[in-house]
């Protein structure tokens, strides 16, 4: 009240100034709102832009090669005369390498998540968690380098192969790279399992192992599958490593011990030499588009599963 009478005592001119000041403040507030809205929506704009460019640049190839023979054609000879644009070898390479990577990263990632969440004491967790996260921050070219220098000669020697740059090599390195993703997401899923579930299990005479297998893992199951799918998404989109260690042969792989050329590696390796606007150029865009659809589907599926997971555990976020 004291403040009000003080203001009243200052006359009409200061009153107008005060009104102007308030007006300015409101304009400023609106302005900030708009700036942040623009920043937030910019990612949507970029997403639409990327999809638009991918569409526009990949469509011309389908007037030359029908979609069916593009996807399921067995031969990728983009620079031959006449060229052949069948990306089945590239798709299969990606699939093999990704599945191989899963064989490595699922036990490693989920296993370490279980250890971190269920077994490790406070100190061990404090050491291990940052270590695993550091794995995620190593640049992919370093992983690739590691694969070229260490894994390649090792595989060559052990399996007496003509080259150690094979799908197996790429699988192993990609698996290592996807492990931190799988581990930290799976660990989150496990830590969301309410303590009350564990207590309920202990209260009827279950031991720690039974509680883990029968209550905690099923309850966190969909969260763990989300972790695995996002790990797959990470592995299938990885480029530099597979470019360095997968060997690069665009043929349909029969075993994991053959060199392969995953989709990402094909795009990265060939974009520089494909004449702009040519069929090869458009074909590479089409591969990128398919890759985008694959990872998009993975992410949607992961989101759906994780939403169901939150509902199941009664977490509303």
């Amino acid at each position: 009240m004291a403040c009000l009478s003080w203001k009243r005592g200052r006359g009409p001119s200061s009153c107008r100034a005060q009104f102007l000041g308030e007006h300015m403040a409101r304009v400023k507030e609106k302005l900030y709102e708009w700036i942040f809205a623009a920043l937030a929506f910019s990612s949507l704009v970029f997403l639409i832009g990327i999809v638009w460019v991918l569409c526009k640049e990949s469509l011309p190839i389908f007037s030359r090669v029908p979609l069916g023979s593009f996807l399921f054609g067995k031969f990728w000879y983009p620079t031959y005369c006449p060229p052949e644009f069948g990306i089945l070898p590239l798709i299969l390479s990606s699939v093999w390498v990704t599945l191989g990577a899963m064989v490595v990263c699922v036990p490693l990632g989920v296993g370490s998540a279980l250890y971190l969440n269920e077994v490790a004491n406070f100190r061990q967790r404090q050491i291990l968690k940052p270590m695993i996260e550091i794995l995620a921050s190593i640049p992919s070219v370093v992983y690739g380098f590691f694969g070229v220098v260490l894994v390649t000669p090792f595989l060559q020697k052990v399996f007496s192969l003509p080259t150690g740059m094979t799908a197996l090599n790429a699988s192993f390195i990609l698996g290592l790279m996807a492990t931190p993703t799988v581990c930290s997401l799976a660990e989150d899923a496990l830590s969301y399992v309410p303590r009350s579930f564990r207590e309920a299990s202990f209260a009827v005479g279950a031991d720690r192992w039974q509680t883990l297998i029968k209550v905690v893992i099923p309850a966190a199951g969909s969260g763990i599958s989300t972790a695995i799918i996002l790990g797959m998404s990470r592995a299938i989109g990885e480029t530099m490593t597979v470019l360095m260690v997968a060997g690069g042969a665009a043929v349909i792989p029969k075993t994991l011990l053959e060199p392969v050329r995953p989709m990402t590696a094909a795009i990265a390796a060939e974009m520089g030499e494909a004449p702009m606007g040519g069929d090869h150029y458009h074909a590479l865009f089409a591969i990128a588009f398919i890759l985008f659809i694959i990872t998009f589907v993975f992410n949607i599926v992961a989101e759906i599963i994780s939403r169901r997971f939150r509902i199941k555990l009664g977490i509303s976020r």
Partner: peptide, 15 residues
């Protein structure tokens, strides 16, 4: 714990 059962504050059925 098998001989001494417990019911908790918040109902905690398993999913």
């Amino acid at each position: 714990r098998r001989r001494v059962g417990m019911v908790f504050q918040k109902p905690n059925p398993f999913p």
